[in-house]
Design a binder for these strands. Structure first.
Lengths: 144, 144
DNA sequence: AAAGAATATATTGCGCACAATATAATTGCG
DNA sequence: CGCAATTATATTGTGCGCAATATATTCTTT
């Protein structure tokens, strides 16, 4: 068998598999907060800086409007955010946390810790792995 | 702002983002073969060992029947595989490559090379990154 | 000021990914 | 043997993720 087509020789399959495992790791924890992992990511962005355009959230997370629009509408339905057209530029939709959305942050404080418990690795090793991953990531994305 | 909720301090976000970038990298290449990345993964498994149960493919790729059944039906429609109930145990569906599916392998030989061109990293570094990722992966999955 | 280009978001359609449930076949136990 | 438990796949429903396209607004150029 051609070596290059063996699953065990693939680099990308572990990346794909790990990403799935990671979101599975978050699932039970985030379900308690009635959130999905992508919704949680959007909130991480908003907790850091509120009142953003859809496109600004998209840039941060590499997600387009086809993904974000329905996701944001679901967050709106849960009254975690507000979507409002910008009066200065009616093309723009600004996303603002509601008070409920802002308060949710306190409940989310414990999430990273719970996740890290599953990673039974030293902080240094985590740093090294993260560096490896982000290096590959910046390389791929810079190539476009 | 609480440091632990900063996006830039997350380990899992780069993993999530990298997995998306990777499938985006495969997309134009696999589109030429009329395949998606998960379909390609199924074929990697079958090219290595043919005539597998749905569950055996699922174990290999960590995918359940909810994902695989429709995916395999699409591969069947493209006449790349055959789905047939096992006569010994009618609960089991065996997946076999068609001659077209077997021939597709030749056209796929070039895929890993094209992908690796996008990773402008030395083989040693790729190996190290892969090790880091698979280590985390086995750790998480062994914890269940 | 009007027409056309550019921009921002929304919509549609398709294919995963996974939980929950359903269906059908097989096995095991009394 | 007969029936409950188990096993294997299928179905349903929800939520991404992304390409392609649509719609609406703003900017540009003349």
């Amino acid at each position: 068998m051609a070596e290059n087509l063996k699953l065990s020789n693939q680099l990308c399959f572990p990346i794909y598999a790990l990403a799935k495992e990671v979101t599975n790791l978050y699932r039970p924890i985030l379900t308690e907060l009635d959130l999905t992992y992508p919704q949680y990511l959007v909130l991480l962005v908003l907790w850091e800086k509120d009142d953003l355009k859809v496109s600004e959230i998209g840039e941060r997370l590499s997600l387009d409007s086809g993904t974000l629009t329905p996701l944001l509408k679901r967050l709106e339905q849960k009254q975690i955010i507000e979507r409002k057209r910008d009066s200065d530029d009616e093309r723009v939709v600004k996303i603002k946390l509601t008070s409920k959305g802002a308060r949710l942050k306190e409940n989310a404080e414990c999430v990273p810790g719970k996740i890290m418990e599953s990673f039974d690795i030293s902080p240094e090793n985590i740093g090294a792995i993260k560096k490896g991953i982000t290096d590959v990531l910046t390389q791929i994305t810079s190539k476009k």
